[in-house]
Design a protein around this nucleic acid. Sequence first.
DNA 1: TAGATTGTTAATCGATTAACAATC
DNA 2: TAGATTGTTAATCGATTAACAATC
Lengths: 225, 225
Amino acid sequence: MIAPFFTKAGEFTVNSSPKVPIPTLERLATYLRFLIDLEASQVETISSTDVEKQTGINAAQFRKDLSYFGEFGKPGVGYNVIELQNRIAGILKIDRMQPIILIGAGNLGSALIGYPGLREHKFHIAAAFDTDPAKIGRSQGELVIQDEARLREVNQALDARIAILCVPAAAAQAVAEEVIAAGVRVILNFAPIILRVPERVVVRNVSFLQELAVLSYHLSTDAAK
Amino acid sequence: MIAPFFTKAGEFTVNSSPKVPIPTLERLATYLRFLIDLEASQVETISSTDVEKQTGINAAQFRKDLSYFGEFGKPGVGYNVIELQNRIAGILKIDRMQPIILIGAGNLGSALIGYPGLREHKFHIAAAFDTDPAKIGRSQGELVIQDEARLREVNQALDARIAILCVPAAAAQAVAEEVIAAGVRVILNFAPIILRVPERVVVRNVSFLQELAVLSYHLSTDAAK
DNA sequence: TAGATTGTTAATCGATTAACAATC
DNA sequence: TAGATTGTTAATCGATTAACAATC
């Protein structure tokens, strides 16, 4: 552990980096997409008020979000679209290709493997695994589905730190442990289950059933309107 | 100021009932899955402390979440697993089949159509649409992909209020307007774009690229450890 | 310069959590 | 009853937003 040093009375930071709120990180990805669209429309400069007008995200929030990472704009002028884009990509570390391993080559897994947006965001599915003998050996694009039993061995060469889990809920916990043992540090989990993982491992869940449930609730409250 | 037709997910008020926080609704869906698992394990009663032990969700938060909707437990005893399950399903209105229309029958759309979890949560994809002549007419399970041009007409009979958008980002805004015109009130959007919709319409976004970006950031900060 | 817009501080808002009287 | 656990109030924590001095 690095010794904490004191900044203000009672407050301390580790490594000097202030903690960035998760919602800020989520919005950063949104800003990036927005900036890419702006670039495509040949917009060179944008102000935080323009961002609010076009995305609905509060201008102060936009500026505050960026402020966690430094200074990006010119007072009186705004932000250079391309520069901001590059800097956000740098913050999110999606400025160079990152290998991902995917486990579970069912319908969903296959759809993800074939999704072109991944490559555009510098993510690259470097290996895909399954336990189903009917799927092992099948090729999809440039990938060949491999036996999950070989996961650890294969990742010794790849050294992927990101795993995507597209396995059934019943298998997800065991698979999570497997990929962590293979060196994975962050997991994108599509299985509808809460994974228990060591503190150093970060999990994010994608649950469209949950999203549908929230929408369904809104539907019922809306009906009265 | 934000133009009147912008809606941040969940920002609308409900008639007389106290406003339920969005995170509470999201957790409700998690509780439901958890309770289903408990029932399968023949657990009859559970206390909020047990919930915390098994899911990591704070016991007080669990009780607070439920308190928005009434009283569910017995002091000194806990909650009846099956009863709580039914009541949460009722709150989320997933206690009876709900028709959904899906637009965009590419890899992702097809995967969703084939996903068995939907049916388990009482969601039923009643119609699927695409603009691609190569896809129109193709059948998938019990569904036949229909021409998107017929969407409004088809939904006059179905009266689906939920739409899932699996179309490319460039098409998403137009499709959103189309489904809203067809009577849809809540949208699950898979396209990486911020949809502009009337205030009464609720949108939730599923963006696994965004999730990956957040994970990618965590990866970079972790590296120092 | 004057006008515009940033970065940041302070105020507000809302969600989480701890504490505890009520109650089974 | 005594022990356990709820539902709810109050305290805490954290995120959003408004305001404004700095500055291009």
